[in-house]
Design a binder for these strands. Structure first.
Length: 487
RNA sequence: GGUGGAUUCGUCUAACGGUUAGGACACAAGAUUCUCAAUCUUGCAAUAGGGGUUCGAUUCCCCUAUCCACUACCA
């Protein structure tokens, strides 16, 4: 009978979800789900000094919008609870004492920082060999203490990482790290091991920054006589600095929290898709994935070791792919808050606008700038009427606009079909292709070199009255320009 | 300083020890289009350096260089 795979995501409540953490959560989720296993959420809040109001809710919220659903956690329970370390604090002491009993840990009465950091060599093991009597005496005197791990002085510790392969470290290079702090709380390093064991975690998935300290965790498992879990260390995510150099992804590289990216108009599925590709390859040429697709394709064999650089351009592309794949109704629902349109997007002409936008944006926040011309005609330079490709000049533009106004003001049924028919007919009459005709029209309507949709679309969107007004305005601008020139 | 890790186009990445080193983003050119996108075509662009092992090395080994992480009573 094979053991069920159990992975966990163990964030600290810091108030935001860094992309690197989210990627770790994603891989832990994907690995578990691809193995029909369980994904557990545990909150690591042993540092009382860092408590941030509402930070835990941010974690729930993020996992929910990212669609990383956990099977056990503080909010939904499970048989291995509690899932918040501060609620488990009573249980760590006995494990620390067990290690003292076994000789794998010892009391230390040194003041914080007293015997270390001078030569970058860590704690000097001052209390490592105190006699039992000395310890008793100090304890009886009520002296504050910590419990430290007694690292073997010789030998080496090694393991076979599922990503990095065989790694071996000399014990002599390891530190007698603190397990239980003087306030009675466990350190992260200790609580982590104890909880992972108690919660029956089978695969530890985390960033490669823990690679160096892993031997210390292994020695703890060994000292307890516990079975070691499997380890899957993930390459870190870097960011590119303005000067081109690379360093760990941080705020100066732009938005690095999940919430910030969502606020910028990225889709959760777009973000997830993109970060899945950082440090992992499906080994096929597919790049666009749904969550289910990721679960189906995910394999540790595709995870690689070297760090990846977060690239906003590719994120934009991936996100744009997801936007254009969206169900139109869903797109409308998502786009609405960005559109500043009265009423709903459900009117036919706004639906039309939505469909024009859907293939043209890579993130939702681009919507306002793309459509603002519809609500207010921007001031524009008449030079824009000049377009070589469409053989458009100031003179031809004015003439065309007059003709267009004549035709369009006669149009009764202001529909796209009729508008197109009318302008096509006019173009034929003037011996022009549609392009040269619509250039000045679209320009007067929008004042912009580039717009979502062509002249016909914009006529339709603006409606008869506004359209004619803007066309007149275009002529006026051209005439004024001529007046100025003649002076 | 010590320890561990990493190194394929600018970026993300593919390649049982045998490929003209492939794909994607970005960039450039062209086609197409009522503008712009989208789409299609094409182009540009990489195995860090040096030694081995081998008939043959991006792939295995060693050295060098560079980068990263860890080296807290933070997580």
């Amino acid at each position: 009978m094979s053991e069920t795979v159990r992975t966990r995501f163990a964030p600290s409540p810091t108030g935001y979800m860094h992309i690197g953490n989210l990627r770790t959560a994603l891989f832990a989720y994907l690995f578990a789900k691809s193995q029909n296993g369980k994904f557990i959420l545990r909150i690591e809040d042993t540092d009382q000094g860092r408590y941030v109001e509402g930070a835990v809710d941010v974690i729930y919220e993020t996992l929910k919008t990212a669609r990383l659903y956990h099977d056990e956690g503080p909010d939904i329970g499970g048989e291995y609870g509690p899932y918040v370390q501060s609620e488990r604090k009573g249980m760590y002491r006995q494990f620390a004492l067990e290690l003292v009993e076994k000789g794998a840990a010892y009391y230390c009465f040194c003041q914080k920082g007293e015997k270390e950091s001078e030569s970058m060599e860590g704690y000097d093991r001052h209390c490592r060999n105190l006699s039992k009597e000395e310890v008793e005496a100090q304890l009886a005197a009520g002296k504050p203490y910590v419990i430290r791990q007694r690292i073997p002085l010789e030998g080496s510790t090694s393991w076979n990482d599922l990503v990095y392969g065989e790694i071996s470290v000399e014990n002599s290079t390891l530190d007698d790290q603190v397990l239980l702090k003087s306030d009675g709380m466990p350190t992260y390093n200790f609580a982590n091991v104890v909880d992972d064991h108690l919660m029956n975690i089978t695969h530890i998935i985390r960033g490669s920054e823990y690679l160096s300290s892993n031997p210390k965790y292994l020695l703890l498992y060994d000292a307890f006589g516990w079975e070691r879990p499997q380890y899957i260390h993930l390459p870190i995510i870097n960011g590119k600095n303005p000067d081109g150099s690379i360093s760990k992804l941080s705020k100066r590289h732009g938005a690095v929290s999940f919430q910030a990216l969502v606020e910028q108009g990225y889709l959760p599925e777009g973000i997830i898709n993109y970060i899945a590709l950082l440090g992992w390859s499906p080994k096929t040429e597919q790049e666009i994935f749904s969550m289910d697709g990721l679960i189906a394709q995910f394999s540790i064999a595709g995870v690689h070791k070297s760090p990846a650089v977060f690239d906003y351009q590719k994120l934009d592309w991936v996100n744009g792919q997801h936007i254009s794949m969206m169900d139109p109704e869903e797109f409308i629902r998502m786009a609405l808050p960005y559109a500043r349109i009265e009423g709903t997007f459900l009117e036919p002409k706004w639906r039309k606008l939505a469909s024009l936008l859907q293939s043209r944006i890579s993130k939702l926040s681009e919507i306002p700038e793309k459509i603002s011309f519809l609500f207010q005609l921007p001031d524009y330079d008449t030079e824009l009427f000049v377009n070589k490709k469409n053989k458009s000049t100031l003179e031809t533009s004015a003439a065309i606009l007059r003709q267009a106004i004549d035709c369009l003001s006669a149009v009764q049924d202001w529909s796209e079909e009729t508008l197109l028919g009318t302008l096509t007919e006019l173009a034929g009459r003037l011996g022009l292709k549609l392009g040269p005709l619509t250039w000045p029209v679209r320009l007067s309507l929008s004042g912009l070199l580039a717009t979502p949709g062509g002249a016909i679309d914009i006529l339709y969107l603006l409606g008869r009255e506004e359209s004619l007004k803007r066309l007149e305005n275009g002529i006026r601008r051209l005439e004024n320009k001529n007046l100025v020139d003649e002076k």
